[in-house]
Structures are given as C-alpha cells and as structure tokens.
Design a protein around this nucleic acid. Structure first.
Length: 615
DNA sequence: TTAGGGTTAG
C-alpha cells in the first residue's frame, strides 16, 4: 500500500516497482512499522534508480525520473547523482547533463560520473571542459576523477594535457594510487613519452596485472617490441600474473618481431592456463602466426574458434594477402559474407590481397560489387588499393584518371603506389609525371628518387639516371634507416646498412663475397640504379652489398643447416637489388628464403618469388 | 553511497 502511495502503478515500470516492493518489505520487517513520508519516497526512488543503473535500463530509468518530476519530488544530492550515473551509464549524456546542471549543489561523484560518461563515449573535449568547470566550482577531484579524466587526454595536444593533469595529481598522494598511476603511465605512453610512462610505473609502490600490462603495451604501441618482450620476461620472472589482455598485448610485440619460437611458447602458456575463450586473444594468435610466416597455424586457430568477429576474418584475410595467396583471400571473403558483415577493413584486406595475389580483375569486380550493393563508405585507403590493382595490371592511365576523379586529395602514398607500378611496367612518361608530384610533395624522401632512377635505368636512359642523382645531391634527402633481423635460437640478430659494428663482421664479409662470386656466375647482375651516391660503379657494388637484408640472409645461410628456410625480416620495403640477390641465393644454394618486408612476405624458391616481382 | 586503469585486424 505504502509503495504506491502517490505513485500511480501504471506510471512505474515493472522492474522499478519490483525493487520498490522489495525495499518496502525489508523496511516493514526490520522496523515493523512504516510511516508514509518523504523518507520512504527517497528509498523507493533510490532502489528503483539503482535497479536501472545495474541493468542499464534507460527506459525504466526515464519513467522513474518522470515520476519524480510529476510527483514534484526534489531529489537530494545523492539521488540526483544516482540519476546522473544512470543516464551516463546508459549513454543518455544529454539527460545526464540536464540533471547535473539542474542540481543546486554537486559533489565529486556527480561531476566524475558525468566526466566518465563523456570519456567513455569518446567526447574527450567535453570531458576535459567539464573537469575544468569542476575545478573552477571549487570541487576537489579524487582518485576516481583523475583516473577518468586522464583517459580523455588524447589528440594532438595530449602530452600537454597529461602533463597538466599530472601536475595536479602530483600535489596529492594519488600518483602512487594503482588506478591513477596505471592510467597516467598509459596516457604518457599513448602520447609517445615512454620514458615518463616508465618513470611513473617504476614509482608505483605496488603493481598488478593491469599496470604491468599497461607499461608493456606502451612499448608495444610505439613499436618497441624488443623492449616490450624484455620487460615482460623480467616482470614474469618476478611473479607477474598474466591475464588474456597481457597475452594479447605480448602477442602484438611478438608479431612485430616475427618471433615464432616465443609466439609458440606463449601460445602453449595460454593453453596451459586454460583461460576461457576470448575472441581478441585468438585474433592476436591468428595475426602472430601469420606475421611469423606460419599461415597454416593461423588457419588452425581460426578454424577452431567457436565464435569469430569481423576482426578474426580480417586478420585471416590480411594473412593470406600478406603471403600473396589471392585465391584464398577471395574464397575466404565469400565464406565470411555468410557469417558476419564485412566492414571497411575487410574491403581493404580483400583489395590489397587481390593486388598482392595478382588477382586484378577479381579485386576490381569485388570492389564494384561492394560499392554498388552495400553503399560502402570509401576511404582514401580503398582508392589506394584500387590504384594499386590498376597499376599492377599495367592500366596506368586508368589509375591516373581515378586519382583525378576520386573525392580525396592524393597523398604521397597514392602517388608512390603508382610510381612503383611505373617501375614494374617501365613506363617513363607516366613515371615522370608521378615522380614530379612526389618530388614536389616530399623533396626530402630518398625513396622516390631511387624508384625514378630505377625506371630510367630499366629503360636504358643513363643520362637521366645521372640527372636524378644530381637532383638528389642538391636536396638534403633523408631516409629512414633500414634494418633487417633474423632470429636464431630465440636470439634476435639485427643488421643495419653497412653494419660496421657486428661482432662477426669479418665472417659475414667473407661469406657475402663468396656468395657474390657464386651468384654472379649464375647470371646475377647488380642493379646500380639502386644507389644514388656520386661514386664509381665499384663503390656502388660495395654499397649494395652492405644492404641490411643481404647481411641478414648471409648470416642465415652461415648459421642454419642445409634445407632449412631462412627467415629474414625488414622494417622497410625491400630494394630491387636485394630482391634479385635473394632470388639467386635461393636458386644457387637451394634454399627457401622467406623475406618479410614492411608490407608483405616474399617467399623465394629456386629463383622465383611469390610476389611475381611486383611489390 | 559512488565514479575508475591495460587488449586484437589496417
């Protein structure tokens, strides 16, 4: 009876009503006497709102709120805060904000709940703005506020924002609070300052799985895979507890390193832990095996998954594409459409897979089909893939037309893709137009000069090769330092161009000279257009021999038994001369060579490569 | 009384 006093039954949702009754029963049995009044109504509303918060029941929550308004009930701070939380958790941020703005006084909980609502829906500017309003209103943030607001320090100004929030935190004791510290170090790492992230981590009085995972993830996100792996080993040996997020993070770094042995070991650890099924973790395993060159293992993981997300399919499609297995890309894509809806990444994976797999027309057909049937929103990346497909098939003019007609300003990557096609199809006229665009856009990028020089050299236009070299000398050109690595017995051996400091430099030099004689006898001709320095031909040959991937292949040949595949990784795209070198080594020494460059795998067997000399 | 930290494909 009491519970419906002043509350029309029909207006109160069933869920809320049930909680109201439960509260009434409790109160009746404990006190034995329940008097009607404002106190009773508070508990009814409180229980009802709590039920809605727990169940994310927005509709019922709105009804309870409407009931308060109709009954002219003015909720106290606590209850109004619960309403803010209810709306914020249900994603109804405008309603949450209305309640917050209408509160005669607000506490740290109501401010924080609202900030959290904005953070979790990606409205970071609003979150930060509200945080500032909170400070101006004289409300002191607590550990929850700091942990929340830090997650909104993103975007181009993130490092300054993190530093500002950090200076506020430093005035409190919250810097060593586990959640605040984890959030702080995570944001420093995301903003690119791994040193500061590490400093915060090292200062934490206690560490848990999340804080350890956050710092490892920080190294992984910045591509510092070696450091991520080292830190994991160190923390693991001192008793760090791992969960599925830790393993997912670690697998990302092992993928980057292409460290198959560690990858398998971690997989074994995961199996022994008997963790429940997590899609994200399995997706990481698919990606790790594919980037380690073991597609069959990826497929095995993929096939055994009880559930798959679009990301699982995309990871598998990318894997086939990366290995140049075009027909599997197309076949898997067809199966995918029966199970889940392809997304924009799927289209990228299929287009790039068809391009790398040599299935030009199939790729163009799928592109037309998806664009027509699904009204897909196309990004510049999709256009890049189609331009790549047209370029691969030699339809350079069509590719040029598409660049002119597409609704995006062409980026250097787009022109670069076309320039690569001009090199493969030795098209000087289009190549010159494209190169001019590129040289205007990024005059300091050495790679563009090299490819233009390759084109002239392939066409026998030696005067122009000379002209490009002089052009390059006039500018200050830079090149990301190339490095290659090979993993033998879990030890990573890294080589830089003309590595002078490798402990086995003498042995490697002797072996590479021996290889050079052998492959030259089999018909290898060095491609001097890959060197643009103003030196004589003999010196050019010496410089080419210093390329990091040649050193790594040579080191592999020296240190692995006959018959074993040599697996080498490179951080940039492989150069024409090194590709040719590897082809001859595979033939003369009867060795399969797997070369993973920035974009894809080259599997070289008996003088031929799976990329079909287009990459 | 309550708000909170780490993760996968390109």
């Amino acid at each position: 009876m009491l519970m419906t006093r002043g509350l029309r039954r029909a207006a109160v949702p069933r869920l809320a009503r049930r909680y109201m009754c439960a509260t009434a029963a409790r109160r009746t049995t404990t006190s034995g006497l329940v008097a009607p009044g404002a106190g009773a109504r508070f508990h009814d509303y409180d229980a009802a709102v709590t039920a809605c918060v727990e169940r994310r029941a927005l509709k019922q929550g709105r009804q309870v709120h409407a009931h308060m308004v109709t009954a002219r009930y003015r909720p106290p701070v606590y209850l109004a805060t619960r309403l803010v939380i209810m709306y914020a958790r249900c994603g109804a941020l405008d309603d949450a904000r209305n309640v917050l703005d209408g509160m005669p006084e607000r506490n740290v909980v109501s401010w924080t709940a609202m900030i959290s609502g904005y953070s979790q829906t990606g409205q970071h500017a609003e979150a930060l703005e509200l945080f500032i309003r909170m400070l101006r209103a004289g409300c002191k943030p607590n550990e929850f506020t700091f942990a929340t607001v830090l997650t909104s320090c993103s975007g181009p100004q993130s490092i300054h924002q993190v530093k500002q929030v950090h200076s506020l935190i430093a005035k409190t004791n919250f810097e060593s609070h586990m959640f605040v510290g984890s959030s702080l170090l995570d944001m420093y790492a995301k903003a690119g300052n791994i040193q500061e992230a590490r400093r915060v981590f090292d200062m934490l009085p206690e560490r848990d799985t999340v804080s350890c995972t956050a710092i490892i993830s920080g190294y992984a996100q910045l591509g510092l895979d070696d450091e991520a792996l080292d830190l994991f080993r160190q923390l693991y040996s001192t008793g760090m507890q791992c969960n599925y997020v830790t393993f997912t993070t670690l697998l990302t770094s092992l993928s980057g390193l292409a460290s198959l042995d560690y990858g398998r070991q971690v997989h074994g650890l995961i199996l022994r832990k008997e963790l429940p099924f997590f899609v994200v973790l399995q997706n990481s395993l698919i990606d790790m095996y594919s980037k380690c060159g073991k597609l069959l293992y990826s497929r095995r993981v993929f096939d055994h998954m009880p559930q798959r997300s679009a990301i699982s399919w995309n990871a598998m499609l990318m894997g086939y594409g990366r290995h140049g297995i075009g027909h599997e890309v197309v076949q898997l894509f067809r199966s995918m459409t029966e199970e889940v809806k392809p997304d924009s990444v799927t289209l990228l994976a299929v287009l790039s897979g068809c391009s790398h797999g040599g299935l030009v027309d199939e790729g163009l057909d799928i592109f037309d089909l998806i664009v027509k049937e699904q009204n897909a929103v196309l990004s510049i990346g999709h256009y890049g893939c189609v331009i790549d497909l047209l370029g691969r098939s030699g339809r350079l003019q069509k590719a040029l037309d598409l660049i002119r007609d597409m609704p995006f300003e062409p980026t250097p990557a787009i022109w670069g893709s076309l320039l690569g096609a001009c090199r493969v199809h030795i098209n000087v006229s289009v190549g010159e137009v494209v190169a001019q665009k590129l040289l205007d856009m990024e005059p300091g990028n050495a790679g563009n000069y090299v490819i233009l020089s390759n084109i002239y050299a392939a066409a026998g236009m030696w005067k122009d090769v000379f002209r490009v070299r002089n052009l390059m000398l006039e500018k200050t050109v830079t090149k990301e330092p190339g490095q290659s690595w090979i993993i033998l017995d879990k030890v990573i051996h890294t080589f830089r161009s003309s590595d002078r400091f490798h402990p086995r430099k003498k042995d490697i030099d002797a072996k590479i000279k021996e290889i050079y004689v052998d492959i030259k006898a089999a018909g290898f001709v060095p491609d001097l257009s890959c060197v643009l320095h103003d030196v004589d031909d003999e010196q050019k040959e010496r410089m080419l021999l210093g390329h990091s991937e040649k050193l790594a292949v040579t080191f592999g040949l020296m240190n692995t038994p006959p018959g074993l595949t040599i697996r080498v990784m490179k951080n940039l795209r492989i150069c024409v001369d090194c590709h040719n070198f590897a082809k001859f080594v595979s033939k003369v020494y009867r060795r399969e060579i797997s070369l993973r460059d920035k974009n894809r795998f080259h599997l070289l067997t008996d003088g031929a490569c799976t990329c079909g000399d287009y990459w």
